[in-house]
């Protein structure tokens, strides 16, 4: 199933609490162990972006309001 949207994690705010990772129903998110934020946390990022449904659960449970959710607008059928 193609992605219905995507999220952007603002790494200024992310504190790597993993609540979004745990609550995502499609296991889209994980902590990025390769990188550190300026505050020394491994930020959340999308590891399975094709499964994102833009449901906003991650953003609602995020204690630091770090997540912006974008949903693709429906394309009009051609012809």
């Amino acid at each position: 199933m193609p992605a219905k949207g995507y999220i952007i994690v603002n790494e200024l705010y992310c504190k790597a609490c993993e609540l979004c990772v745990t609550d995502c129903p499609h296991e889209v998110l994980a902590l990025d162990m390769e990188r550190l934020t300026s505050r020394g946390y491994h930020p959340a990022h999308m590891v399975k972006p094709e499964a994102c449904t833009a449901c906003s659960i991650c953003a609602v449970v995020c204690p630091d309001a770090a997540i912006t959710v974008h949903r693709y607008e429906k394309q009009k059928a051609e012809g």
Binding site: G5, L12, A16, E18, Y41, V60, V69, H70, Y72, E73
Partner: peptide, 23 residues
Amino acid sequence: IPTKIVYERPEALDPRVTHYCPG
């Protein structure tokens, strides 16, 4: 692809990072 934002940081919240513990 054009998107619309369905969730973002509210304007009434200050841009600064809180001192609260992770989670």
